[in-house]
Simulated assay, not measured.
Amino acid sequence: MCDDLGGGQVAAISVCVSILVIAASLIGTSIQQLSSEEYGLMYDVNARDLENEVREGGLHNGPPGFRFVKFPSTYISTDIPEESTSDEDSAENARNGICVSRDGLRVTIAVSYQYQIEKDSLITVVQKYRTRDRWSDLVNAAAVSAVQTGCSLYNISSFQTQRAQIQNSMFDELKKMIEGNSTANAEGLYARAIELQLREVNLPYEYSRAVSDKQSASEDISLAINQRQQALTVAETELQSAVEEAKRINDTAQNEAEILIEQATIEAQGIQVDFEADTDVYLALKSNLNLTTEGLLSFVASDVIAATDEPQVRLSEPALTTYREEL
């Protein structure tokens, strides 16, 4: 083109340079790159036209000056509450991090969730919500609502014993809200829920204190029951020992009593034999000597006195010292 110019060498060169610059500029603005983690829709800024083809990572040619409306092709991870960038955001996030249980108590929670845009729905998302930020804000609002709904299905006590179930309920609500619900004829937000984690649960101080007090009281009751059982065991052991000791003493006493009774019986029998022998002797003596009863008594008394070395006899009047006349 520049060789065809006949005159004005400098002007021709200037025109050629300008043409080359413009061409390079047009070529430069006609090529855009998408990363391997992005989807893009080509938008012609001049014609204000949005292409109906979803592009993926790589270099792409398009009309001069076009740009891509970009969305991540991988999953997006978000936290509830989100990190605060201002005092106003901090207050809002604090509210998002608090849910109300079915029995009306406020629970402080921390949740992470992951979602991904549906490639086939990218054109619809751009047409309805224009930008990624608007779409993401709606998804995050739906996630907060899902978490609040899942929280409201359970009593405060369940947050200690059914945490996994609560997490699953929150995830189910998130899927309904962002994926759509055919039963309720809801389109959703054209996203796919990947996962949700209930990372932290902080129960109200009053409830935690009441649970702690109840646990302490339960431990005290268990301790008292154990101590009572131990005391009963000790008492039963002592009672059993006392019963055994009483039985032993009773058996010993019965044995000793039987021995004493046996000894007394034997002694009584001996005394009886002695008395019977004496009786026979005295009867024979009375019969042989032809004595009266008084005479026999006098004879026995004389015999007793004679057998005593130094007899001391004290008689009261009118006692008789002899029964000679009766003999």
Rank of each mutant, 00 (worst) to 15 (best):
N185D: 11
Q116R: 15
E173G: 07
I19G: 06
E256Y: 03
A24C: 10
S18D: 04
S157P: 00
N181G: 03
R102N: 13
D137S: 14
G188E: 09
Y113T: 05
G8L: 12
N168M: 05
T322H: 13
Q227K: 14
K175G: 02
N290T: 15
E206C: 01
I123W: 11
Y154D: 06
G40T: 02
Q240W: 00
G57S: 06
N155S: 06
V10N: 06
A24I: 09
D133K: 10
T149C: 01
V234S: 09
Q165E: 12
C151W: 04
R199D: 14
C2R: 13
A47Q: 13
Q215K: 14
Q263L: 14
T321F: 01
L297R: 08
S208F: 00
S222C: 03
R95H: 11
R199L: 11
C2G: 01
N185K: 15
Q167L: 09
V54A: 08
R55F: 12
K70L: 07
D278L: 13
D4N: 05
V100F: 08
T161K: 12
Y129F: 15
G28L: 11
E83R: 13
T279N: 12
K176G: 02
A184F: 10
R102Y: 12
E179R: 03
L174W: 04
S86D: 14
V69L: 15
A301L: 11
G104M: 03
M42Y: 06
Q165R: 14
E317S: 11
R248L: 08
L297T: 05
E326A: 10
P81G: 01
E38I: 01
L34V: 02
Q312C: 01
Y154V: 02
S86H: 06
K119C: 10
D3V: 12
F71Q: 01
K286T: 05
D133P: 00
Q227W: 00
P204C: 00
P311G: 09
V126D: 12
A23H: 03
L105E: 14
N185R: 06
S241I: 14
E267N: 08
E83L: 03
E56H: 03
T29H: 05
A210G: 00
G295M: 12
T308K: 03
D278A: 14
S36L: 07
S218T: 08
T74S: 02
G58M: 07
S169Y: 05
L174A: 01
V300E: 07
D251G: 02
E258M: 13
I221N: 08
D44L: 13
N226I: 09
K214C: 03
I109F: 02
A193Q: 02
A217I: 07
E245V: 10
N255R: 09
I13Y: 05
G28M: 06
S14G: 08
Y154L: 08
Y75H: 08
E236N: 15
G62F: 01
